[in-house]
């Protein structure tokens, strides 16, 4: 009841005084890699910008430069009364947990990780489903029947991408070969395009002609190497098809932008809920990108195959294995 009244009050204020349209002061904390990583963080930025454009409500943001800054930045936001405060990336989890406890009246959200607190919304994605779809496309586009995967940091989350991808590839051609490499075991693995390029080159040298990356900034090197070698790359998180038109088969889109937009919007409309939100294919949280840049690469046959897979996943007839559920990949 109080919520409704509060919501009405917000509405009244909004109508009465459009200048100070906001009773919410959203904030967003990007992960290492920065807001223009053409990938994960940038998707968040796009969502926040969309919200700003539509509602006229401004937001604060901050890009951390090192791990030590996370907590301080979150607290800085909190102290200024920012809410909701959205933290991008699983590495922020322990900091969010700490700061959210200190400021129980503020709203927090975290992407890619679950923080179990009454004032935190945890947004996680079923990346395996989107990866499965691009795996289907990769297997069909590959002439050598050898495809590659380059991950960023070797963590369960990235293995989840890899596993779904392998599942999609094997669904098309059980004999197809998938080369898998991880860039590293530390945070630096997200921002090392040279290493990413070398990994992609080594896979291409071994015969791969489609390479999918889930490696943030490192992935720019993967796509570059694939394009340089005249092979195909597959982008991730944001739609990266435009980076090398005609050389990027598709992108596995993870709609962090939608998640951020929703978080801000829900808070503004008084519809905020805490708890875990799992966004899969059904919810429009993941998908694959088709636009002018890659439409020449996607044949009608590929399109119908991927549509079929999509339908199967949504209606439950195709189950894509979640690596993080049991830390194994059956494909």
């Amino acid at each position: 009841m109080r919520k409704t009244i509060f919501g009405l009050a917000v509405l009244a204020v909004t109508i009465a005084a459009p200048v100070r349209a906001a009773d919410i002061q959203p904030a967003i904390l990007y992960d290492l890699g920065g807001k223009f990583d053409k990938s994960f963080n940038e998707a968040a930025y796009v969502g926040a910008e969309k919200f700003k454009k539509e509602t006229g409500v401004d937001y604060r943001d901050f890009e951390i430069q090192n791990d030590a800054q996370r907590e301080q930045a979150l607290r800085n936001f909190a102290r200024r009364g920012n809410s909701p405060i959205v933290a991008i990336g699983f590495t922020q989890a322990s900091s969010v947990e700490k700061v959210a406890k200190e400021f129980p009246d503020l709203k927090f959200a975290i992407v890619d990780m679950v923080v179990d607190l009454p004032n935190v919304r945890s947004i996680v994605f079923k990346e395996q489903e989107g990866s499965y779809l691009v795996g289907v496309l990769a297997a069909m586009a590959s002439k050598s029947k050898k495809v590659g995967f380059v991950g960023g940091m070797d963590i369960p989350l990235i293995r989840k991408f890899a596993c779904g991808y392998v599942g999609g590839v094997k669904a098309v051609d059980a004999k197809a070969e998938v080369f898998q490499n991880m860039t590293g075991t530390t945070g630096a693995a997200w921002n090392d395009p040279v290493k990413g390029g070398e990994l992609a080159k080594s896979q291409i040298d071994r015969g791969a002609d489609v390479v999918y990356h889930a490696a943030g900034g490192t992935g720019l090197g993967v796509l570059q190497a694939a394009a340089d070698a005249g092979k195909l790359g597959i982008g991730v998180d944001s739609n990266q098809n435009h980076l090398h038109p005609g050389k990027v088969l598709t992108s596995m889109t993870k709609r962090v932008d939608v998640a951020i937009y929703d978080a801000f919007k829900d808070a503004k409309d008084g519809k905020w809920t805490a708890g875990v939100r799992v966004l899969g294919l059904k919810e429009g949280g993941v998908g694959w990108a088709l636009d002018d840049h890659n439409k020449g690469l996607i044949t009608a046959e590929m399109k119908s195959a991927v549509d079929k897979a999509e339908k199967g996943i949504v209606d439950g007839s195709i189950k894509v294995h979640d690596y993080m559920a049991d830390k194994t990949c059956p494909y």
Partner: peptide
């Protein structure tokens, strides 16, 4: 360096 890159997790 090349060997290290190639052997990462392999």
């Amino acid at each position: 360096d090349a060997v290290a890159i190639r052997l990462q997790g392999t």
